[in-house]
Structures are given as structure tokens and as C-alpha cells.
Write a protein that binds this DNA or RNA. Structure first.
Length: 414
DNA sequence: TGTGCCGGGCG
DNA sequence: CGCCCGGCACA
């Protein structure tokens, strides 16, 4: 899919990404690449998009078509998420987003996906309960088994419904835009309404079909993400947000961390299982953080971490048609959204494309400023706890190499 | 005062 | 290039 479907532009981007990024195991690669690509793409997008030409637009169409095709296969997830979202995310809706729009879609998408809602509606194809159901059960069961030892077993039921839903929708989304709930809500609301506007705008560049396709495919992504996240992080769900947000301190990062590195590669191959392996138990917190950590490390090694945040922020910002400047800071984290990464499916690549393309325009502007700022000043300093604080001087050997060398921490990136 | 990390030195 | 550390900026 990736290679074939991608437009030349995308291909270039990918290549860049590949080049920048460190090579990984083939198995792991598929998953990790997606994430990497995303990051890279978003970061690099600026250039390609800036010089967009009509030809490129055509390419977009093609891409959109490709996406649509791929999507047709994986629309399943939609229906289930919606239900859940309604039940769980009701609060969100209640706040104001609910209105006439399709609440479920909004809530489910959480943030940037919300505008995809229209597509959801438009697409009558929501008949893929089997898949969703499958995805849920199979994943979870194994995960539970894998976790095995702990109390996880009993908790599962609750997790499936509540946590799962929360994980799927609330968790992933909130994280990204942790900034202010209000802002988020606004964004979502606007997004719900906006979709049309956006579509119209895009229609200029590409046909309505194009926009729809992109939206759809966005949607798919989300679902995938949510599923994967839920599967992997099911236990984590409640805590996971903490990762992004500084407030919640890591309870017992050490154990999880030590385990993670080893399991890291194997986990990826298994995809959904990852989280479980990490430390499926209720402590999940540590597990998610560990996952992030791992990814971060790679990113760091491959390229400057700074670029990533900006890109993410962009995506998020773009998602909300009504962009609020204040969000910037919060968005920086959003790129972490890579939680999606876990899902790593054929679909994701396509999504990255569409994603980048659509948003790139809007994003490009945003992305550049942050970078410059960081570059100029001394990088402001990471606020989160670094290896030193987390592990302490005693366990210096547990620090990431960067910390050991008094360099920018590569494990706990900001 | 403690922490994060840049800049630079050593092998 | 890996490793380490002086020293600055910041909280």
C-alpha cells in the first residue's frame, strides 16, 4: 500500500523520513515507520506543500482515491466507537458540542478527527460490527492473558466497557489537547460544523470526492488508533493521559522501564500486545510512558526532537478550523498522538498522507515559528522529569545515554 | 540549590 | 565517535 499508493510527493517525504530515521527490524518497522513517517512528514511537509502546484493537487485526488479504496475495507470500526463515545463521552457533548451534529463521531474522534464526523455521516457504510467486535475481543483477551499475573483479570470487564470507551475516545483525545478543555470543546464544536467549510475549501484544490475520502480515511485512522490503544493500553487508559501531562508524576517508572526496553521490539511485532507486555497490570501508567519513551528515543537519535512537536501541533491546530493560538503549547504534545502508531496498519500510511497534505497548508505556517523560537533561545528546558529525577543519581546507569552524558534527555522528551 | 543540557575536551 | 564534565540558564 504505502509505496504504491503514495503520491510522488508522499514518496519523497517517506524517503526523507526513512533516511532520517534509524533502520529498524522489518517487523517492528511497519509499525514504527508509520509513526516516524508521520512525524517526519508533518515536519517536512512545510516545504512540499508550500510549493504546491496544480499537479500536486491532482496527486491529492489520486491519493484521496487510494485512501477511499483502502477505507472501503476498514469502515468497520466506526459503529462501535460511536456507541461507546456516546455513553462515555457524553460529558463532552453535553458541554456544547453535541447539538445537531453527530455527537458520537465528534466525541469519538476526540479532537482533530472530529471534523471527520461529516464523512462518517455521509458514509452510510457503518456495517462492520464484526470487525470491531473482533478487534476488541481478540486483542483484549490475549492481552489479559499476557498480563496474566495480576488483578487485571477481574478488572477486564470494566475496562472493556468503560475503560475501553474512555481509552478509545476520551483518553487519546484529551491527551493531545490537554491544554484547556474549553478550547478543545470549541475546537471540536467548530470542527463539527466546520467540516463542511473545510470540505468546501478543499474542494478548490481537489474535488469534493477528495475531501470526503480524506475525511473517511481520517476516520478510519482514529478508529484504528483507538482500538489499538484500547487494546494495548486498556489497563492504562485512565492513567495514560498523565504521560502527556506533567502533573501526574510517574508512580513506579523504574520497573516498567526496565522491562520495556527488552520487550520493546518484540512487542511491536505483535502490535496490539505491546502495552500488555509492558506491564499490563493496573499500574499501566508506567507502561504507556515506557512506550512513549521508546519511541522518543528513536526519534531523538534519528533527528532533532524539536521538529516533531511542531508538526504535531500543526496537525492538531489544523484539525480545529478555528485555531486558537494558546493551544500551541498544548499541541506540542499532541504529536505524541502516535499512540496511533501502535495500531500500525496499512491504513495508517495513507492517512499520514492525506493528513499531511490537507493540513500542511495550515500547518506550515504554524510549524515554522515554534522551531525558530526554540532554536533561538536555549530550548527553554524540558519541564517533565528527566532520567536524573526519575531514577536518581544512584541509578545513574538506568539513565538514558543522553542524560548520562549531560545531554538533552532522549528518553523523556518534551 | 538542584536540574537540564550546551559546549567543549579527552581518548 | 563515545564518553565525560565545566558551566550556564533556569526553576
Amino acid at each position: 500500500m504505502e509505496g504504491g499508493c503514495l503520491s510522488p510527493e508522499a514518496a519523497e517525504e517517506q524517503r526523507l523520513a526513512d533516511g532520517k530515521r534509524v533502520n529498524r527490524d522489518p517487523d517492528t518497522r511497519s509499525v514504527s515507520l508509520l509513526e516516524q513517517k508521520r512525524k517526519v512528514v508533518s515536519s517536512s511537509i512545510d516545504v512540499p506543500h508550500a510549493r504546491r502546484s496544480e499537479e500536486e493537487v491532482d496527486m491529492d485526488k489520486v491519493t484521496a482515491a487510494m485512501v477511499l479504496t483502502s477505507l472501503s475495507t476498514s469502515p468497520l470500526v466506526r459503529s462501535p466507537p460511536v456507541k461507546v463515545s456516546e455513553g462515555l463521552s457524553g460529558s463532552w457533548k453535553d458541554n456544547g458540542s453535541a447539538g445537531p451534529f453527530t455527537p458520537s463521531s465528534n466525541s469519538s474522534s476526540g479532537g482533530y478527527w472530529s471534523w471527520s464526523a461529516p464523512s462518517d455521516q455521509s458514509n452510510p457504510s457503518t456495517p462492520s460490527p464484526p470487525l470491531s467486535a473482533d478487534s476488541f475481543k481478540p486483542f483484549r483477551v490475549p492481552s489479559l492473558g499476557g498480563v496474566g499475573p495480576g488483578p487485571a483479570g477481574p478488572e477486564d470487564p470494566s475496562l472493556d466497557e468503560q475503560d475501553g470507551s474512555s481509552l478509545l475516545f476520551d483518553e487519546p483525545i484529551p491527551r493531545k489537547r490537554k491544554v484547556s478543555a474549553l478550547n478543545q470543546l470549541k475546537c471540536w464544536d467548530s470542527s463539527a460544523v466546520v467540516p463542511r467549510h473545510i470540505t468546501d475549501h478543499f474542494s478548490r484544490n481537489c474535488d469534493s470526492d477528495c475531501s470526503d475520502g480524506e475525511e473517511d480515511f481520517y476516520y478510519t485512522e482514529i478508529k484504528l488508533n483507538t482500538d489499538s490503544v484500547a487494546d494495548g493500553l486498556s489497563s492504562l487508559s485512565p492513567v495514560s493521559p498523565s504521560i502527556l501531562s506533567p502533573p501526574p508524576p510517574p508512580p513506579s517508572p523504574l520497573p516498567s522501564l526496565s522491562q520495556l526496553p527488552d520487550s520493546h521490539r518484540p512487542q511491536q511485532s505483535s502490535d496490539t500486545k505491546e502495552p500488555h507486555a509492558g506491564g499490563a497490570t493496573p499500574l499501566s501508567r508506567s507502561a504507556p510512558s515506557a512506550l512513549y519513551l521508546i519511541h522518543t528515543d528513536h526519534a531523538y537519535q534519528a533527528t532533532a526532537p524539536v521538529s516533531i512537536p511542531s508538526s504535531t501541533s500543526n496537525s492538531a491546530g489544523s484539525a480545529c478550523t478555528s485555531f486558537t493560538p494558546t493551544n500551541n503549547s498544548s499541541f506540542s504534545i499532541s504529536w505524541q498522538s502516535p499512540p496511533v502508531t501502535f495500531t500500525g496498519n496499512t491504513v495508517s500510511p495513507s492517512k499520514s498522507q492525506g493528513f499531511g497534505e490537507q493540513r500542511s497548508q495550515t500547518i506550515a505556517v504554524l510549524s515554522s515559528p515554534p522551531r525558530a523560537t526554540t532554536a533561538l533561545s536555549r530550548k527553554v528546558r524540558g519541564e517533565g522529569k528527566k532520567c536524573r529525577k526519575v531514577y536518581g543519581m544512584e541509578n545513574r546507569d538506568m539513565w538514558c545515554t543522553a542524560c548520562r552524558w549531560k545531554k538533552a534527555c532522549q528518553r523523556f522528551t518534551d
